[in-house]
Computed example of a mutant assay.
Amino acid sequence: MSVHQQPELKAAILALPDRAKDKLLIRLINKDKMLIKRLHFELLEDETDLQARVEHLRRQLQTLFVDAAKSMASNTSLNSIIAVNKLVRHANGIINEHEKVTKDKISEVEFRLLILKELIQRFSQIVEVSHLQASHKLHQYLAARIKFAYGKWLKLHEDYQFDFRDELQLIITWGSNSALSPYLRQYNIPMEI
């Protein structure tokens, strides 16, 4: 239940002395790790820190994909399909956290495209393998990620759209010529952007 649905409680909280409100606020903030990260970024960091975060995340994602590629070493078994699915989901989770903390739409699109490019470069042979349910889940998820990246790209200013257009076009073309094709058709993503 929301405080806004209980006007008496809201009035009582607002009537508390500042010191009591501050204590209550700190206790509540401590219960939400993401809020702590968000507040730290908003209150204590600047544009330089954002660039450092972006560079760190870029290296982290690239290392994640390099290590995964070494461990799978062109293995196209069912386990590899499952591992690629977990890898892409994990990488997207890292980007979700970055976006929630920084609210930086440009780096979010950059990293969504980076994941898809790394996938194409390192694991396209695994994506093409068919192991029924596992492949279906991976294909469905990847098509949804391409759709999501395309939607985020559409919301960018046209100058940024221009910067990312070639990368996104490469990903869409690859997807439409791969096992993802029927899944992408369901999302009505244009083949030429």
Results as ranks from 00 to 15, higher is better:
Leu28Pro: 00
Lys31Met: 13
Ser130Met: 04
Ile36Asn: 02
Ile106Tyr: 09
Gln62Ser: 13
Leu50Phe: 02
Lys152Gln: 12
Gly175Arg: 08
Ile146Val: 15
Pro190Lys: 06
Ala149Trp: 03
Ser74Ile: 02
His131Trp: 14
Ala52Asn: 11
Ala179Trp: 01
Ser2Phe: 10
Ile189Gln: 01
Gly151Lys: 11
Lys70Ser: 09
Asp22Phe: 14
Val54Gln: 03
Ser124Phe: 01
Ile106Met: 06
Trp174Tyr: 15
Ile126Met: 06
Ser178His: 07
Tyr183Asp: 08
Thr173Val: 09
Leu170Val: 07
Glu99Leu: 14
Asn79Arg: 11
Leu16Gly: 02
Asn75Thr: 09
Arg59Val: 07
Ile82Phe: 05
Ala15Thr: 00
Ile189Leu: 10
Gln62Cys: 05
Ile189Trp: 04
Asn30Glu: 15
Lys21Leu: 14
Gln161Trp: 06
Val66Leu: 11
Phe111His: 00
His40Phe: 10
Leu57Gly: 02
Gln6Thr: 05
Gly175Phe: 13
Lys21Phe: 05
Ser130His: 13
Leu142Asn: 01
Lys37Ile: 03
Asp166Ile: 01
Arg58Leu: 12
Lys152Ala: 14
Gln60Gly: 03
Gln161Tyr: 07
Gln62Asp: 15
Ile171Trp: 07
Thr173Asn: 11
Asp166Phe: 09
Ile146Arg: 11
Val54Gly: 03
Ala144His: 09
Leu168Ser: 03
Lys23Ser: 14
